[in-house]
Design a protein around this nucleic acid. Structure first.
Lengths: 251, 251
DNA sequence: TTTACAAAATGACGTTACGTCAATTTCAAG
DNA sequence: CTTGAAATTGACGTAACGTCATTTTGTAAA
């Protein structure tokens, strides 16, 4: 039996955290001494590491509790939701990065009156949500759960899911043939067919995911401010070329 | 004078939020009625919108308060810090996205025992920080502030900053000449020189920024799990090709 | 002018995942 | 059996408000 401090040394999780998990009924000690000190076993260690991993992927303790307790939890649903959230959050951050870059540049040009710089930028960034406004809704939100009900379960073993897995497996085998290979294109075609077959919005997830990942660069509202993204990219590219020619000289 | 509800309708900011800002001394109403109702004027509206914008870029209310109150606040320092944070956060999210993708795939292949899938993935993701572990330190952190002291102030008008701005301006004028143009390469060369001139770690910021932006793809630990990123990218690419050939048929 | 109803004001608690005391009790070695 | 280290249980703090509950103010209609 492991003392609570041993658990800390093995996993890096603080004592306070263990106590917290105990209170939440998320991770109970295997036993207690007569004096009330917590004792943990091997299985608790494993569970703790699972919790760590799930937290790292962004799930809340409440979500994790449900996942680990309810035997037949729909993992794929949660993960898909989380995936969509993570992808969208990246895009928001990218927008923010652009704003910050341009703010930096505009301040450099405007001199001291930052307020002017800000005011100009505000016009460009209108309609954006603030960073915590769009904070993720609970994964375990029963009211929205029905949306995911119609998504095909890749983890299930109905005939439909099996075909999906099969298609993916085949695709993997033919990767080396190149993008235009006949068999590859046939597989892709079949996938697209399946996607259209269940047309009544059943494939919401894949649709949304592919749309997100494949969408062309957002219609840029560039060139509106003195030193814009175009220039920055140009700078970076030019810098790369410079480094390359510099290295050639050294050869 | 604007009633508090008018402010809400004009800006979308809730009454509770206005009250909160009042308590924090972040945004005080211009006046109050004899009964104690808050009244706002035009300048308050403008300030409120600035607050909204700064919040959107990710600053805390405490930071914003300092920025707006202290007349000669070092805006560039804060913005640079924030920019670095945003860029790094994007990379973390990208890592998380990969983990989620592979988790989804591994669950699809492993069937029901998600725990196995998780355990396999845990091996790959070790050492990563959890999402709130790496939450941003305060911008207004005096202890770390001295680090930024040595960063060149692009907003200042010392001769150094002037040359930087000049170089950027020139670069902008010659963009259309292409990456390999002589003048362009000379400007870039000069920038690189300046960067090395102040060698004693003075240009910490630019170094870090360029390093982050120009670093090659992280050494991928791919191919370790059945359906990995390589395949996913391949899928997407193949799908694009498919769509293109499909469109050609329609022409 | 009084009435009555909408809107504003002021607490105060809830949220997330613990950190950080403070006061008390238990454990293990000597 | 003593003692110092380690563990225990509260309890408050964090960020930015949301959401009651209760009381007060403003104003249009009667």
């Amino acid at each position: 039996m492991l003392h609570i401090h041993d658990v800390k040394k093995l996993t890096g999780v603080t004592v306070r955290t263990l106590r917290h998990y105990d209170q939440l009924d998320l991770l109970k000690p295997a036993a207690k001494t007569e004096g009330g000190h917590r004792l943990y076993g091997e299985s608790e260690l494993k569970k703790l590491q699972q919790i760590q991993f799930l937290k790292q992927i962004g799930f809340s303790l409440g979500d994790i509790k449900s996942m680990l307790q309810e035997a037949n939890w729909e993992w794929t649903d949660s993960i898909k939701k989380q995936l969509i959230y993570v992808i969208e959050e990246q895009q928001h951050l990218h927008q923010t990065e652009i704003l910050l870059q341009e703010l930096l540049n505009s301040i450099a040009l405007e001199g001291q009156n930052h307020l002017e710089a800000i005011r100009k930028l505000m016009l460009l960034s209108d309609g954006e949500k603030t960073m915590q406004d769009r904070y993720k809704e609970k994964v375990f939100d029963q009211q929205q759960m029905h949306l995911l009900d119609r998504v095909p379960r890749m983890a299930g073993h109905d005939s439909d899911s099996l075909e999906w897995i099969g298609l993916i497996g085949q695709l993997k085998q033919h990767m080396d043939k190149g993008l235009s290979d006949n068999r590859v294109q046939q597989i892709i075609r079949r996938m697209d067919e399946k996607r259209s077959e269940q047309f009544e919005g059943e494939d919401v997830f894949l649709d949304k995911l592919w749309e997100i990942r494949l969408s062309p660069e957002d219609s840029e509202k560039m060139g509106l401010y003195p030193i814009d993204q175009e220039l920055l990219h140009f700078m970076e590219d030019a810098y790369v070329v410079f480094l390359q020619s510099k290295q050639k000289e050294q050869d």
